[in-house]
């Protein structure tokens, strides 16, 4: 009898928590879509400026989301561009060259770095900018500093995905090239690295997603509410997630609040697309593995 009671209790608890989570998720997304989708329009993005003029940077967009979207794009490109080469190289080192104690030492450091809260990374970036300012007067918190800090944030993910992708290559494939006289570097360059590309690519895409959504790092390192398109690496800039945060606390009228909803939907769409792309690439990797067996 007691057994039976426990069984029913656990089953209902599991269904309850599952359904609660799902409904909460649908309420959150549904609320955003209902409020945000009607606001989507070209004028939301470009304001009064014509899209062609805005895209060619002939005229400043003053009331639309365009500068924030452009800022986010630039930021993502810069930070992922900075982090990827270092992350891949370190991942390769971890997977192919390091052994034993050295390997666990490095992985511990990367795990800690991955666990450091993003606001602390932001604070680090800010302090870096202030310290550099003593030597180079032009350096303040800016696009470049934000990109650097975001690169620090995603570096451990890139390293770990690269390492994991390379280590999961089956040993038959691993031995093929050395048996034909390949040196270690040739094996990496011609066989191991190309084979792990799908896994690495999905890691890079997830890193892009993290850079696109992060708010805590950039709010300490140079993002502002109104800056237009950044003129150089050393100027302040706008970004979508910060705009959403800013509107939620500082909106002046109903129209501004509307743009906030619009920005949130756009950001959601961007992140969903990136996520689906990463997912697709990961499954591709799995298919390839199975096929090789």
């Amino acid at each position: 009898m007691k057994e039976r009671f426990i069984e029913i209790f656990i089953k209902s608890f599991a269904w309850l928590s599952g359904l609660l989570l799902l409904s909460a998720a649908f309420v959150i997304i549904g609320f955003l879509l209902v409020k945000g989708v009607p606001t989507l329009s070209l004028s939301l993005i470009f304001g009064d400026t014509s899209p062609a003029d805005a895209l060619l940077l002939r005229r400043q967009v003053l009331t639309g989301l365009f500068p924030a979207m452009a800022g986010t794009c630039l930021l993502v490109l810069l930070s992922v561009g900075l982090a990827t080469p270092v992350g891949l190289a370190a991942g390769i080192y971890l997977a192919e060259y390091s052994r034993g104690n050295l390997k666990s030492f490095f992985s511990l450091f990367y795990d800690i770095l991955a666990g450091v809260p993003s606001i602390v990374i932001g604070l680090f970036g800010f302090s870096l900018a202030i310290s550099l300012h003593h030597y180079v007067k032009e350096i303040y918190p800016c696009l470049l500093i934000s990109a650097l800090a975001l690169a620090f944030l995603v570096l451990p993910y890139l390293i770990r995905t690269t390492q994991f992708a390379m280590e999961s290559i089956p040993s038959e494939t691993r031995l093929t090239a050395p048996a034909l006289g390949a040196t270690k570097l040739q094996n990496i360059a011609y066989v191991l690295f190309p084979r792990s590309l799908p896994g690495i690519a999905s890691g890079v895409i997830l890193a892009i997603g993290r850079c696109a959504e992060d708010t805590a790092v950039i709010m300490l390192t140079g993002v502002v509410a109104a800056a237009g398109i950044p003129g150089s690496l050393l100027s302040a800039y706008e970004a979508l997630p910060f705009y959403i945060y800013y509107i939620s606390s500082q909106y002046r009228d109903a129209y501004e609040l509307q743009t906030g909803y619009g920005a949130a939907v756009i950001l959601l769409i961007i992140c969903a697309c990136l996520f689906l792309a990463a997912f697709y690439l990961k499954n591709q990797l799995m298919d390839r593995m199975l096929y090789r067996q």
Binding site: G87, A89, A90, L113, V120, I159
Partner: peptide
């Protein structure tokens, strides 16, 4: 190449320590 890979690994790991030192 090995030195390059090692350099990237050390650089990334040193960030962990550098953040602590800055704080």
């Amino acid at each position: 190449a090995e030195t390059g890979f090692l350099g990237a690994a050390v650089l990334s790991a040193s960030l962990t320590a550098l953040i602590l030192i800055f704080m």
